[in-house]
Design a protein around this nucleic acid. Structure first.
Lengths: 112, 112
DNA sequence: TCAAAATGCAACCTGATAGTTGCATATGTG
DNA sequence: CACATATGCAACTATCAGGTTGCATTTTGA
């Protein structure tokens, strides 16, 4: 188990949501979710930010376990990791489920 | 359509995720997702923070459209709103779907 | 070897966040 | 009315986040 995974698991879903709470990072993640590995310059291509800014965002994503990176020659390629997104989805599902239960209880109360 | 909803729709899911990216706010939202209305003091009860700190978090949640509030007498009651959570779930679903597609394409490529 | 490419690292600036304290205001109740 | 309760608002501090610039390091390839 990696360090990032341990931290993510021990501190709950909040850090994952925090990592998702930025336009740029969402865009990076959307690109990477096709499973391909991309270098930092490739990911910085059509973004209006500096390469270093993109690098920082990628490090945030990596700290949250949403991506991982490997060094290949002179470039480091980033790739999508599915785990945290699955966790986040599961969490939102529980919240939505409790809400749905509340709704149906209310409906029963009104109708019955 | 409310102002918060408009802003959330025009700026994408990032602000919603940002609002979710905090332990305290997640806890508040988890409580409220049972559909009941709660006053600020009620929500500040078992939290180790000041009432004002909780108030600020509630305002962040309200700005993201995740909760709404009504003034009843001397207290203002907060309640859960389902819309943004549904949007967030939908967004994560698209990301996960693209990832699944990438996986199955890879599988086909390897097997075929 | 030498130049270009890709990245890493550090300093720095600016604005936002999280939290506090203090006080003012509104409201329910004896 | 007087008092307790609930909230609102403002000021203030400290830390973090996003972004930039500048420079050092590693790697590729002619």
């Amino acid at each position: 188990m990696s360090n990032a995974s341990v931290r993510a698991a021990s501190s709950g879903p909040a850090p994952v949501f925090a990592a998702l709470g930025d336009r740029t990072r969402l865009a990076l993640l959307a690109k990477l979710s096709d499973g391909r590995l991309r270098s930092i310059t490739a990911l910085s291509a059509d973004v209006r930010l500096t390469r270093q800014a993109v690098t920082k965002h990628l490090h945030v994503l990596r700290a949250a376990g949403l991506v991982s990176s490997v060094r290949i020659g002179r470039e480091s390629r980033f790739t999508y990791r599915d785990g945290p997104i699955a966790q986040a989805r599961a969490y939102l599902d529980t919240v939505a489920a409790q809400w749905d239960d509340a709704l149906s209880r209310l409906r029963t109360l009104v109708e019955g």
